[in-house]
């Protein structure tokens, strides 16, 4: 057994070292990332918990107000005064089939949502914050490829780009790419971009 494989870091109390541990932010390569302005609305394309994670992390970083709603619709967005829309990608598959997620319905909802966000003049961020575990199947890919081209910038964590996919994809789409070390650091990273 390779010990190094199992033991990466001594554990620590959650929030004590948060500010320090959180972020490694290197904003994108070719294109400048736009400033993030609250209030922020977070939703998901695929019903995975990424949106909740983004919200929790933003709350930790005092980037408020940040609301998350996995079922957010265009009507729910209009006239609420949000400045930024973050859409996390990757699909939830707990209970396949009848209890699973219909990714096509999700994509249709998101397309309407982005249209509304454009009308409201909002910044749209496509995000992938749950690592390679949400880059395994065809549904994950469908949600990523539906959201990212509609976004103004792409926000990911390091683990999501292990194979360099997002680095190449952001270049292909000519979108700024923000890479955060881990999900815990998302809030702090976005606060930096304010």
């Amino acid at each position: 057994m390779k010990e190094a494989f199992f033991v990466r870091r001594k554990n620590g109390r959650i929030f004590a070292g948060l500010a320090l541990a959180a972020v490694f932010l290197f904003a994108a390569v070719a294109v400048q990332a736009a400033p993030i302005e609250p209030p922020i609305a977070v939703t998901t394309c695929g019903q995975s918990p990424g949106a909740v994670m983004v919200k929790m992390s933003c709350a930790q970083a005092k980037l408020m107000p940040t609301d998350s709603d996995n079922k957010l619709t265009a009507d729910g967005l209009r006239g609420k005064g949000y400045k930024t829309l973050i859409i996390t990608t990757g699909t939830s598959m707990k209970g396949m089939g009848a209890a699973g997620t219909d990714v096509n319905k999700e994509i249709a909802r998101i397309e309407e949502l982005v249209k509304a966000a454009r009308e409201e003049g909002m910044l749209v961020v496509g995000a992938h914050v749950e690592g390679m575990a949400r880059r395994t199947d065809a549904s994950d890919e469908a949600s990523i490829k539906a959201v990212m081209p509609l976004s103004d910038m792409i926000l990911i964590i390091e683990d999501s780009d292990k194979d360099g996919f997002f680095t190449a994809y952001s270049k292909e789409l000519n979108k700024p790419l923000v890479v955060v070390k881990d999900a815990l650091g998302i809030g702090a990273a976005l606060a930096e971009l304010k």
């Binding site: 598959m93 396949m96 089939g97 009848a98 699973g100 395994t136 199947d137 065809a138 549904s139």
Partner: peptide, 16 residues
């Protein structure tokens, strides 16, 4: 197989 098909984007209920 159903996990594989689900991974590949097939409808798991119809495929099964």
């Amino acid at each position: 197989l159903i996990m594989l098909f689900n991974m590949k984007g097939l409808d798991p209920v119809v495929a099964l």
